[in-house]
């Protein structure tokens, strides 16, 4: 565990310190083929470590969280000159537009609020990039590798002060179900009243 903490905190070699370099524009692109192949290997590797579909989804989710926790500062610095969002709707829109555009080159199709539960929101993506080249085998019908993306969304929201659980489901393409903790909703209402 110590090893991993060290990985996150930058090492002390002064010459290569990442914070001394200007922030890249993030416009460089690579071929989708290489990304698809890497993701396929990631799914296979994750599968080799677990035995059930749920565990596999959890693994992909965890990997996504790793990515998500790293893009928050990056995108807020780049796109909003460091200003974070405090309102729930604005934050969700930030995820739907900015995060999606930067990671996948397009916005997510829809953002909806559940009718029967005020804590639940849905982000709907018709054709997730991570699923483009994945055909789910019949015996693993419920597997949705976009749980990787769900992990990204969860980490972005959670680490921005909006604790929630995010999961990916096969519905209108892929639907990410975002379920916030009760106090997040209560706090947002208070903010609105002011």
């Amino acid at each position: 565990m110590e090893k991993l903490e060290a990985l996150k905190i930058s090492s002390m070699r002064p010459r290569t310190n990442i914070l001394d370099r200007p922030l890249s524009k993030g416009k460089t692109e690579v071929s989708q083929s290489i990304v698809a192949l890497l993701f396929s290997e990631i799914v296979q590797y994750s599968q080799s470590q677990v035995s059930t579909v749920q565990e596999l989804q959890n693994r992909l989710h965890a990997l996504g969280q790793d990515v998500g926790s790293r893009i928050i500062d990056l995108y807020f610095m780049r796109e909003r000159s460091g200003r974070r969002e405090t309102k729930l709707t604005q934050m969700l829109l930030f995820v739907k537009t900015t995060v999606w555009k930067n990671l996948f080159g397009k916005e997510a199709e829809k953002l909806e609020h559940a009718n029967d539960d005020e804590c639940t929101y849905y982000i709907i993506e018709k054709d997730p990039m991570v699923n483009t080249f994945i055909s789910v085998p019949k015996d693993k019908g419920t597997l949705n590798c976009a749980n990787f993306t769900a992990g990204i969304v969860e980490a972005v929201l959670k680490n921005s002060g909006f604790p929630c659980k995010v999961s990916a489901h096969w519905h209108k393409g892929t639907t990410y179900m975002v379920k916030f903790e009760d106090f997040v909703i209560a706090r947002d209402k208070q903010l609105e009243e002011k």
């Binding site: 460089t28 692109e29 071929s31 989708q32 990304v35 890497l38 990515v67």
Partner: peptide, 22 residues
């Protein structure tokens, strides 16, 4: 299909994999 993907997605995804492997 010569579609392009943001390089940062590759960088971060690969980083997540390496961290997981460690």
């Amino acid at each position: 299909d010569s579609k392009k993907v943001n390089a940062e997605f590759l960088t971060l995804t690969y980083g997540a994999l390496v961290t997981q492997m460690l």
